[in-house]
């Protein structure tokens, strides 16, 4: 009887194997087909993202003011930016552009530093702190990321208007929009981004590391600077970088909160675009792209070193 059971079992297994083989062949075919279509999809996605940018770069070297013809390679437009001879375009002046660029850098750097410090502290207190309402603050953190930028811009402008009004009544000082309002606006939306990135990093950090430091005699301050901070530094750097890029190319919030003399590069470029798309704009955009790429590569290299890879 036992033998009988065994044979039946074996033959059943044989059937199973045949079925399995067919299924495997089919599976393999589908897998290959699937692989190919996935490849195609990812290439399509890649093109969708980068084609306009490639075109922009391409035309920034095109020896023609018209977009519908290609007349060979030139560095004319790059030269124009710095030589202050941008043809008939009265709105363009190298001086103004460089001023706008300096303004942008100043605003972005200041806003990034402030937002990184505050954002990191927010992330730390949300990850480590035990206080009532922590969960709600945690969810509120995502709000600036999801609410439309125009809402942020308008609400900030209104808020500043109220503050100015108040100060005028109380102190008689006439405050106005300018760098301060732009920087506060940028800090306001950047805190969220920094905090979210740092918080993710903190969540991945082994809480035993801090306990181990306490255990070995380090107090809270020493533990933070010697253990916690080096551990979250890649997150802080990533957050700062994100904040810097968001701040550098911000248009909407800046538009609603800028004042005389505080024109940033995006506002300046948009002002030029109002008349026509000139090759100089392509050139400026390409330069900004290169700058961003340099920053990203730099930060990747730095993070790599910080993580202890060699």
């Amino acid at each position: 009887m036992a033998d009988d059971v065994l044979t039946r079992h074996v033959s059943h297994e044989d059937d199973g194997r045949a079925v399995d083989r067919a299924r495997m062949r089919r599976g393999l075919w589908m897998q290959r087909g699937g692989q190919a279509s996935f490849n195609a999809l990812s290439w399509a996605g890649f093109l969708f993202l980068w084609l306009p940018i490639f075109i922009l770069i391409f035309y920034s070297f095109n020896d023609s003011r018209q977009l519908n013809e290609f007349r060979g390679f030139t560095l004319q437009w790059y030269q124009n930016i710095f030589d202050n001879v941008a043809g008939s375009n009265v709105q363009f002046s190298t001086g103004l552009m460089m001023q706008a660029f300096r303004n942008s850098l100043m605003v972005s750097l200041t806003a990034t530093i402030i937002a990184t410090i505050i954002g990191t502290m927010v992330a730390l207190s949300l990850a480590r702190g035990r206080f009532p309402g922590r969960r709600y603050i945690d969810s509120l953190l995502f709000l600036p990321v999801v609410i439309p930028e125009i809402t942020q811009g308008v609400s900030l402008a209104m808020f500043f208007q109220l503050v100015f009004e108040f100060m005028r009544r109380v102190d008689g000082v006439a405050w106005n929009y300018g760098f301060t309002t732009i920087i506060i606006g940028h800090v306001a939306f950047n805190i969220s981004y920094v905090a979210i990135v740092v918080r993710a990093r903190l969540a991945n950090m082994n809480p035993r590391l801090e306990e181990a430091a306490y255990d070995l005699g380090a107090n809270g301050w020493q533990t933070f600077w010697r253990i916690t901070f080096p551990q979250i530094l890649p997150g802080v750097m990533a957050g700062a970088l994100l904040a810097f890029t968001l701040s550098l190319d911000d248009y909407v919030v800046t538009f609603f909160n800028n004042g005389p003399g505080s024109t940033t590069l995006p506002i300046f470029v948009y002002g030029m675009l109002k008349t026509t798309v000139t090759p100089e704009i392509n050139a400026i955009s390409t330069l900004m792209l290169v700058l961003s790429a340099v920053i990203v590569v730099f930060s990747l290299v730095m993070q790599r070193n910080l993580m202890g890879h060699r």
């Binding site: 082994n206 590391l209 306990e211 181990a212 430091a213 253990i227 551990q231 202890g308």
Partner: peptide, 8 residues
């Protein structure tokens, strides 16, 4: 238990 060596 997981040693908690400082990775950096």
């Amino acid at each position: 238990q997981d040693y908690a060596l400082f990775p950096h």
